[in-house]
Simulated scan of single mutants.
Amino acid sequence: MPEITGYHAHVYFDAHSQTVAQQLCEKAGRLFPVEVGRMHAKNVGPHPRWSCQLAFAPDAFDQVIPWLMLNRQGLTIFTHPETGQHLEDHRDRAIWMGEMLALDLTIFDRTGT
């Protein structure tokens, strides 16, 4: 069984919701031990919308996820574990808040990396 070494929460936004997403990500970074990534105003990796990544350790899950659930302000948030099995982490082990979107999983090779 793989070990979860961390989590990524990807906050999706568009041109109209970018400010709300940025404020949400910055606040999460102030409140929790979260590494706030760049605001990508383009699709990056498997993500079908613009996004900002929040990275955090397993011991922060019980603080970060409930807070995002209650404060996402209508934004879609895609969260997945980090086990080193990237395909499975994105396809089979994800948590969606809001609209479930199709990811571009073709970027992961058959080994899941």
Rank of each mutant, 00 (worst) to 15 (best):
M1G: 14
P2E: 14
P2F: 13
I4D: 06
T5I: 14
G6Y: 04
Y7A: 02
Y7F: 15
Y7L: 03
H8Y: 13
A9T: 06
H10N: 08
Y12V: 04
D14C: 07
D14G: 11
A15H: 11
H16E: 15
S17K: 08
S17E: 08
Q18V: 14
Q18P: 00
Q18M: 13
Q23L: 08
C25V: 06
E26W: 10
K27R: 15
K27A: 06
L31D: 03
V34M: 09
V34D: 06
V34C: 09
E35L: 12
E35R: 14
V36H: 01
G37V: 09
R38G: 03
M39R: 02
H40M: 02
N43G: 00
V44N: 00
V44Y: 00
G45A: 14
G45D: 02
G45V: 05
P46W: 00
H47L: 02
P48I: 12
R49D: 05
S51D: 03
S51Q: 08
C52L: 05
Q53Y: 01
Q53F: 00
Q53H: 08
A57S: 14
P58F: 10
A60C: 03
A60H: 02
F61G: 01
D62A: 15
D62P: 00
Q63W: 05
V64F: 02
P66F: 06
P66A: 04
M69E: 13
M69S: 10
M69I: 09
L70Q: 15
R72E: 02
G74L: 10
L75M: 11
L75Y: 03
T76K: 04
T76Y: 00
I77M: 04
I77C: 03
F78K: 06
T79A: 15
H80S: 01
P81F: 04
T83Q: 03
T83G: 05
T83S: 10
T83D: 06
Q85W: 15
D89W: 06
D89L: 07
H90Q: 11
R91P: 02
A94G: 04
A94V: 12
I95W: 14
I95Q: 11
I95N: 02
G98R: 05
E99Q: 15
M100P: 02
A102W: 00
A102L: 07
D104F: 10
L105N: 08
L105M: 13
T106A: 15
T106H: 13
T106L: 05
I107F: 05
I107C: 10
F108I: 00
D109K: 05
T111S: 14
G112N: 13
T113R: 15
